[in-house]
Design a protein around this nucleic acid. Structure first.
Ligand SMILES: [Mn+2]
Ligand SMILES: [Mn+2]
Ligand SMILES: [Zn+2]
Ligand SMILES: [Zn+2]
Lengths: 141, 141
DNA sequence: TGTCCATTGAGAATTATTCTAATTCACCCT
DNA sequence: AGGGTGAATTAGAATAATTCTCAATGGACA
């Protein structure tokens, strides 16, 4: 268990985040099993045992974590944002049928020939999304 | 003007879409200037001269066009979907400050080493999104 | 113990998209 | 031309993710 309370506590502090009870609970959910979760899923998992965190706090906290670089957003589904505790460079496999998101390690995939940017632009990141579906599922009706 | 009415008419028919007045107007907006537009932007442009198309029809039509492969969705902004009349393989440059989306030709960018998929999955597409921001704009407050 | 400021949270607001159910329209037949 | 028919359109309501408001809470510390 690499992510016990003292570790999470230090992690938040290191990112300039005051480690409140609710924030630790949310960090726990995110970092314990390193998955890609929506705000709604996080809300449910945090309140699994007994309800103690509000929806507003989950959204506040996720935006705070994102602003401080603790998590990143994964934009693959127009319906909801997913939160990724892995902020290192890597990419994603997205199953459009199941909604499942899987990491692709950065070094598993070579990207070459990025076009030079117009003057005055700076790259913030390069996202690669491999969209897959379960074989047999057709895009047509 | 490569996209006059008879051409659009044939284009819709070729995709199995009955070419109604509203659908032609929407196709016109999408294909005339080949941009990446949101439903709201399309609704405005279609009704620029005189209002004749409803919001419901714009959404219906965009979903129909997407299902029939006439346009593709671009998922870069959690707030809204953008529609792309270019369905050929290519990638996108997304300015997170301005919201501007620019095409990157497929051959401008080499991708190698896609991991083999778990059995029973088939690739639907690979999206590369280069997120840029105007230099000087910071992610922090 | 009391002040202070950040945090929390209930519920309302916002907004992109979808849904419903009724009207309109295009096209065909006579 | 007039009428039947199914598809298309639409106004407005519904849905749902996210944000906002602002009052209540609570920990740190004098
Ligand atoms: Mn957000
Ligand atoms: Mn859609
Ligand atoms: Zn990831
Ligand atoms: Zn494009």
């Amino acid at each position: 268990m690499p992510y016990d309370r003292p570790t999470l506590n230090a992690l938040l502090r290191r990112h300039g985040i005051a480690p409140t009870h609710q924030r630790l609970e949310i960090a726990q959910v995110l970092f314990a099993r390193c998955q890609h979760l929506s705000a709604e899923q996080i809300l449910q998992q945090v309140n699994e045992r007994h309800a103690e965190t509000s929806k507003a706090t989950v959204y506040n906290t996720l935006n705070l974590f994102r602003d401080r670089g603790l998590v990143r957003e994964v934009i693959v589904d127009p319906k909801r944002v997913f939160y990724d505790p892995n902020t290192g460079p890597h990419h994603h496999l997205y199953n459009v049928d199941t909604g499942e998101i899987t990491d692709i390690p950065a070094d598993a995939l070579r990207l070459s020939g990025l076009p030079e940017l117009p003057a005055g632009m700076v790259t913030e990141g390069v996202d690669v999304i491999v969209r897959v579906r379960s074989a047999g599922t057709s895009a047509l009706g």
